[in-house]
Nucleic acid binder design. Structure first.
Lengths: 334, 334
DNA sequence: CGCGGGTATGGAACCGGTTCCTTTTCCGGC
DNA sequence: GCCGGAAAAGGAACCGGTTCCATACCCGCG
């Protein structure tokens, strides 16, 4: 591996000049620049990133902290972040949020402060006060993706509004017996965003004077979760709801599959609406609230670079667009 | 941010001693070590990773190159790699393989050689000869996950065998009209692993003298892909196969959903077998060939650290375990 | 002709660690 | 009492870049 000293001596100039020629900063004559560039190409020189970042204080790396990517939303979001960082020539250091409390502690106490990032993107986690303090101690900008934004810029859809709109859509169709699939009686088990979606559901019912009809079936925000919960809801013929709001499309799709298995026709006998506009939503003709996690990833990176360039600019919160996508899983009740 | 010089002067020792005390290498008296550790804690000192890696030549970072994580297999695999690296205190730098050829070129020509990694894990890509040469020029060990292994250690299941076993299972049940969902007539469109699975299917038919019955329905290796392809296969009542092999569980599940929609009972009227043991397989009672991508991730990291410790040890290929998991989507034909 | 300012370049310091080498001290064994 | 070797600690070099500062040159202008 060749160093800049090798390049310099091959081009017959000093290290300083070689550095200037390659970085384009400072005075270098055109002839010399050519000389240096040729030498660099001949030696297939690439700068040692550790040396560069030690000298400049910038690492060209962004740390991303996120839950496991086995949910569609996170996978898409990560792809969006990745794309945006790649075009900006930033590296992406990925950290999962571990389950165990002591490993989570290690992440925030030692791993993250030890590495040098030019910025951090935190996804779908609610950092504790101390964890937040740890993140901010790095002195680097922090952007979160999700419905909270203490001490950071943030991007997400308005989860409360999304669930409210989904529920209102059913109410407008004439439904009164609307169940929510994917909630939990135990608030601690719910992610922040999912809790807001549950709030939105309750809010819409309340506004329509249907608060007494609220029914929440606890379920993991996954297809099997929605399937199992919906199977329970729909099993009892007499107490069967006429419509279901899924906490996310995965859960809603699980509900549709459960309905089909029980011989309940969607949408004539049962309406189902989801939130996300998952890539599978189309296959099930699922009416849903669309959001684009990939674009949210782009936005997060944009917010981050903005804060890296202007550290003193005020924090910003972006409410990503979300709109009802009507397909064929909702209809008036019989 | 405090440096080791700050720690040293606070502890009343030299930089050299402070470094030895904190790293545990070389002679330091117990009393001095205590002094240094206390000073470090007081200043909440954390070593500057760029400085460390410049001095030692090790970055504590592993580069991971993989396709988008929107398929279950890749998401699980990534989680496995992540877990293993975290416990070893390595960072994970994630790179997507971009679609465009010129951005892919930028990745291999400039991004990967420029960053310093202690090792690289390449997933599900077939590097060209030049790309491989670029990766090896970094002088760091390379481990691939997938059914190829030129110039690297590798881990994967035996895709050919997996598809063969899945197909043989159907043959043993008495099926003769077995279709494959998720192949493509255009080999270039298939991933390396999927192509091998198609080979395994053909091989099993041939061995059973059923080569003439081979039928391949082109489909993306996804649930909608399997759904569409299966809908096509099953639409014509007279030419309907009695069994389907899915290139992966997602495709197989798509096929099951298509069958249900058409009123075809699984497994009595149609047997379906998949490959992967996806987390949704249980929900559909899908018989499949199990594999654990998460463990493959662990294995990949193990192979990598092994090669980092013993660069001259011979390359190794690990054939991960895979076995038939019989649920309730397969039965003898009527 | 002399001076000032922009251009071009090199020497050296610096970023923050690690490690080689040297010096000093201490201890046990002969 | 002396010697050898292990233990402890410090000085300085080094990793490979970037950048400050000094120097030299060239040009145009007064």
């Amino acid at each position: 591996m060749s160093t800049i000293a090798d390049v310099a001596s091959r081009a017959g100039v000093s290290k300083a000049t070689a550095s200037r020629a390659l970085s384009g900063r400072g005075y270098v004559s055109e002839a010399t620049r050519q000389l240096v560039e040729d030498a660099a190409r001949d030696l297939s020189y690439v700068a040692h990133s550790s040396a560069t970042s030690l000298a400049t204080g910038r690492t060209q790396t962004v740390g991303v902290v996120m839950p496991p990517v086995d949910r569609w939303f996170f996978a898409e979001l990560l792809a969006g972040i990745q794309e945006a960082l790649f075009t900006l020539d930033y590296d992406l250091a990925l950290y999962g949020v571990p389950e165990g409390s002591q490993t989570r502690e290690r992440l925030f106490e030692s791993v993250l402060p030890g590495r040098r990032f030019d910025g951090i993107i935190a996804v779908g986690i609610q950092p504790s006060a101390r964890e937040l303090e740890r993140l901010q101690r790095t002195g680097r900008p922090l952007v979160s993706v999700g419905p909270y934004s203490e001490g950071s810029s943030a991007v997400s859809i308005d989860d409360t509004a999304a669930a409210r709109i989904a529920t209102e859509h059913l109410i407008e169709l004439g439904h009164t017996d609307i169940a929510f699939v994917g909630g939990s009686t135990d608030a601690a088990e719910l992610s922040f965003g999912d809790a807001r979606r549950l709030d939105g559901y309750h809010g819409a019912l309340q506004a329509a004077g249907l608060a007494a009809h609220a029914r929440v079936a606890g379920a993991a925000p996954t297809m099997p979760g929605g399937y199992t919960a919906a199977a329970g809801l729909l099993g009892d013929r007499r107490r069967r709801p006429t419509a279901i709001v899924g906490v996310c499309d995965e859960a809603a799709i699980g509900a549709i599959i459960a309905a089909r298995r029980l011989g309940i026709a969607v949408p004539t006998e049962l309406s189902v609406v989801g939130i996300d506009d998952h890539e599978h939503a189309d296959m099930f003709a699922l009416t849903t609230i669309g959001q684009s996690p990939r674009e949210q990833g782009h936005e997060a990176v944009r917010l981050l670079t903005q804060r890296m360039d202007h550290p003193d600019a005020p924090l910003e919160r972006i409410d990503a667009a979300s709109a009802l996508v009507v397909r064929n899983s909702t209809a008036p009740p019989r």
